[in-house]
Design a protein around this nucleic acid. Structure first.
Length: 440
RNA sequence: CGGGACGUAGCACAGCCUGGUAGUGCGCCUGCUUCGGGAGCAGGAGGCCGGAGGUUCGAAUCCUCUCGUCCCGACCA
């Protein structure tokens, strides 16, 4: 994109409502704007970020054998009355009436809806197991939204639902999804630690939450460095093999990890100091096994091998996609601004034209932009160099390709790595090769 | 849902206590100079002071109500 023609409004001063780093930086970098408490508009750069995160989540869900669906945001109250949660959910649920005075709601989660869809069509155990997921907006009317996008009322979330014919199958699915989560987080460039969790209003008895470390996290967490040493990639674990899943799950559950509420000083004390990791954590995902809670309540039964009625064993699996956007910034920023991991950056590189209007510089920039149109942001504004440097640092592009009249005369550009601050002067082709963006 | 604050120009704020019709910095526009880390000078645009009601000759300022936003706590992907 050309910055001069984009709705990417960077600002020097921060609106006073933003308290934490990620919120301030998301506003300053022009990623989002708040429209109501806990409700945000995603501007072009922010949307690219959101989509990049969602794409990685999607790829790993697909790789784990889940199928993507898209369910409505507005749901009929009748479904929730069947499960009993219409009453249980309380004021967090946004309730609406349509013109016919029918009770509707903006979905905070989708167990009822997916169960309804399965019971309509799936009648035999032979059609299971299945996992379906969606990446969709949800709404929970938090009493006190805060931390910008990290604790909004409207949020973008990947939610998956699994149906197995017995506990053993459900447990395999649970472990496979957990592995998919660790792979997803690894690709997103964050350290995520699974911790045994309360199941909350969704219910069930096997549940983990995934916490990533960031200085402004909501709670103190403790874990063994063993989690960081693991490569969760397909080369190390084949998610189709039960043995691999077992080995993986062993690592996830045998090593110590706990939030402060569940911290056990005796166990912690026995861990070698060099392997202790401690910090603030942000919950970024949550997985649950809850058995037949919804299949029974909503009468979703299939015919089993013995011809008898069988209620599928279910689980659900969430990743907060919009929350992840904020969490990534919490985990990766400095005084100057955001430092995006390469995998999710809205733009892989920014082209900084230091002297808009200089024929040589303009020509070199245009040439480069022509090659990087899809992945780069071209700062073609007639601003001074200092403004462009500051905005590029603020927006956090992994690479800055700095083009000024000095180097342009010799066909040279300067390449800056945001994360390290390293700069070097080299030819345009060499710069492209180094960034690894040649093909696009 | 308990506790506490704040709404004045796009943003950050002053003015309010002690009523007299609004100001500063940044941003924005124009011109000149500048031009590799958020430039300088000059000129300019922009606000029915969140909304409604009240007190008063007169309300940003005092009173009441209302809407909105933020912070602490409890709660949550």
């Amino acid at each position: 994109m050309r910055l001069s023609q984009s709705l990417i409004p960077t600002i020097k001063e921060v609106p006073s409502e933003a308290q934490i780093a990620s919120h301030r930086l998301m506003l300053r970098a022009g990623l989002v704007r708040q429209t109501s408490a806990g409700i945000y508009a995603w501007l072009p750069a922010g949307l690219r970020l959101l989509n990049n995160i969602a794409d990685i989540v999607r790829e790993e869900q697909d790789a784990a054998g889940a199928q993507e669906v898209l369910m409505p945001t507005i749901q009929p109250a009748t479904l929730w009355q069947e499960s009993g949660r219409y009453e249980d959910y309380g004021k967090e649920m946004l309730r609406i009436k349509d013109r016919h005075e029918r009770d509707m709601l903006y979905g905070p989660t989708n167990e009822e809806m997916i169960t309804d869809l399965y019971r309509q069509s799936v009648k035999s155990y032979k059609e299971l197991p299945q996992v379906a997921y969606q990446i969709q907006w949800k709404f929970r009317d938090e009493v006190r939204p805060r931390f910008g996008v990290m604790r909004g009322r409207e949020f973008y979330m990947k939610d998956a639902y699994s149906f197995d014919i017995d506990y053993e199958g459900a447990f395999v699915t649970y472990r496979r999804m957990m592995l998919a989560y660790m792979r997803t987080f690894q690709r997103l460039g964050v350290k995520a630690i699974p911790m045994v969790a309360d199941t909350g209003p969704i219910g069930g008895d096997l549940s983990h939450e995934f916490i990533i470390l960031a200085p402004t996290g909501e709670s103190q967490v403790f874990y063994d460095a063993a989690f960081e040493d693991v490569d969760y990639g397909a080369a190390n674990f084949d998610s189709a093999k039960p043995d691999d899943l077992g080995r993986f799950f062993g690592i996830m559950t045998d090593n110590y990890a706990a939030t402060e509420e569940k911290h056990d000083l005796d166990v912690w004390g026995k861990i070698d100091d060099s392997r202790k990791r401690e910090g603030r954590g942000i919950e970024i995902g949550h997985i649950f096994y809850f058995g037949t809670k919804y299949s029974k309540a909503m009468n979703f039964a299939v015919t089993g091998p013995d011809g008898q009625k069988l209620f599928p064993e279910m689980g659900s699996y969430g990743i907060g996609v919009s929350r992840m956007a904020g969490a990534l910034i919490e985990a990766s920023h400095d005084e100057a601004g955001i430092i995006w991991p390469d995998s999710v950056a809205p733009f892989k590189a920014a082209i900084l034209n230091l002297k808009q209007g200089d024929p040589t510089t303009d020509a070199l920039c245009e040439d480069l932009y022509g090659k990087l149109r899809k992945v780069a942001l071209y700062d073609d504004r007639s601003e001074r160099a200092g403004v462009k440097f500051a905005d590029a640092d603020l927006m956090g592009h992994p690479w800055q390709i700095i083009i000024g009249p000095r180097g342009a005369a010799n066909g040279l550009v300067e390449l800056k790595r945001r994360a390290t601050g390293e700069r070097e002067e080299l030819s345009l082709d060499a710069a492209l090769a180094k960034i690894g963006l040649n093909a696009s």
